[in-house]
Design a protein around this nucleic acid. Structure first.
Lengths: 293, 293
DNA sequence: CTTACTATTGCATAATATGCAATTATGAAT
DNA sequence: ATTCATAATTGCATATTATGCAATAGTAAG
């Protein structure tokens, strides 16, 4: 069953002849004739009486017309609404992000974004596990570090640098490390992710060093890590975006500032990723564009 | 837009995978994949998130599903109702017949027919003009005499013989004609149709005679003609089906009973005709069958 | 009675759909 | 981690369907 045929049928009824309907649809009259014939055979009911000069609805055709017209209109309307919806920035934008990033960075961004798109509902899912966008119906996710291969489309938001930091109070107590090896004796805190938990890398110009670490404290949550550093528990490896105000205020102090430090890879970044699709919802596109700029 | 594609979409949603939907429809999975793709391109909206292993409705797809499901069901229902209707003997059966035949013969038949088919409404149009079945939406018509070529399908109900009859009172007054030529001097009454109005034909075995007549009274209505004969106005040419009881009761007497008489043609009959169509409504078929038997 | 128009149909060609097999990807099981 | 079974996609060859044109037949109006 073809809705084109039904539309053709409705047009024939409205215009009173196959020829007029053919003109309206810019097709040959023979196509109209065959379309109506096909319709009649599909449903097994004669819809028109015909002579070579005129047509007239049968009783069944008349009833069919009366009944199918609102249904066809409903179908058109449903599709039109859907298309309109797709081109509007409405509905619910589901964002997934790490707990830390969400708490630290997203509030400002999200509120600025919703101010522009008032019809949009934001559903922000904060979790430090790696979520499956497709399974959980997430539109966009913020990802850190290196991306695994996947069917997702990723755009880089910014590069990330890591720093070793500690509270002044701790450094007073434990001493300021002068070299990488000095760290061994100190209280180290890091992310529990495998790329951060057992080994750190250092770089100064062309010089590289690796150091196996025995952390005193591990967590998947950056804010937790920072809080521990602030509480003078030890030296923490933290991303730049978690630190800005704390370094300015002097609540935290950078340790070994001459060395770049990283977990596994120095080339880490924050990414915004979304499912690959032929038609990306406009809310997703809008949010991605907003984040990138 | 194809309702098959929509049904496939609904099946995919219900069964959770392209493969299952393909099984349900007994087609290749690739066809399902392409059908959904076609649907998405037609409406310009992504309906499913997909991986090679699983699919999930997008927000738009979910909304589409919610909205289109009742519409699709309504469409199926509309068509199912139509088909059911077509196979039921319901609706209105529009019958066209001559005034005389309708009055004299149809009442018994129609009441017997409606007794069997209680859901059927009968609309009996009595008219002595030749009606256009298609234009006037008539299901079946009763036709007399010779049929013209047309797109109608005709089935013979019975042969018709014509008789010359008069009231005994008239014959007492005017005398009983012994030969065809005797008629010339008498008061003749006939149908106003061209085949009856100017010439009558007579047959006895292999012998044939024609006679030009100058009727005293012409009408298109057989009952009228009979009434005039009963009123002893003269000799009338009447079809057998109008006469049965009158001859038995002796209200009318046959004139020249040894001769067969006709207007233009001896091979006349009563026909039931209906529009030619690939699908004859069952009410029409039922009535035609009823009339023939 | 002619004319112009309408629906239908045959036919050649264009467009589309379909299944199969190969490919790619992924979730689950080992 | 690695393997395995399975789902979706895609290329390709083939089958099916749709389309316009031209021819046909039939009808209503002038």
């Amino acid at each position: 069953m073809n809705t084109e045929n039904i539309k053709l049928f409705l047009s024939v009824v409205e215009l009173g002849s196959f020829a007029n309907a053919a003109k309206q649809f810019n097709i040959a009259t023979s196509s109209v004739s065959r379309a109506i014939n096909a319709l009649e055979h599909e449903i097994g009911v004669q819809l028109f009486h015909r002579t070579t000069r005129k047509i007239a609805l049968t009783q069944a055709g008349d009833k069919f017309h009366k009944n199918i017209l609102p249904v066809q209109e409903a179908m058109d309307l449903t599709i039109a609404e859907l298309v309109e919806d797709a081109n509007l920035i409405t509905g619910t934008l589901r964002i997934a992000a790490s707990v830390s990033f969400g708490q630290a960075v997203l509030p400002k961004i999200v509120s600025a974004f919703t101010a522009v798109h008032s019809d949009l509902v934001i559903d922000l899912q904060l979790s430090d596990r790696r979520v499956d966008l497709i399974e959980e119906g997430i539109d966009v996710a913020i990802r850190h570090g290196k991306l695994e291969d996947s069917s997702l489309i990723a755009r880089k938001l910014r590069n990330v640098r890591y720093h070793l930091v500690a509270a002044p109070e701790y450094l007073e107590r434990a001493g300021i490390p002068k070299s990488i090896s000095d760290l061994k004796a100190m209280d180290l805190m890091s992310f529990s992710y495998s790329s951060f938990a057992r080994k750190w890398r250092f770089r100064q110009g062309n010089e590289m060093q690796e150091m196996s670490i025995m952390p005193k404290f591990l967590t998947s949550n950056a804010m937790m890590l920072k809080q521990c550093a602030l509480n003078a528990m030890g030296i923490a490896l933290l991303a730049d975006w978690t630190l800005e105000t704390e370094l300015e205020k002097g609540n935290l102090v950078e340790v070994l500032p001459d060395w770049e430090v990283a977990g596994e890879d120095f080339e880490t970044a924050i990414w915004i990723v979304y499912p690959s699709a032929q038609f990306v919802p406009s809310r997703t596109r809008a949010f991605v564009d907003f984040m990138v700029t």
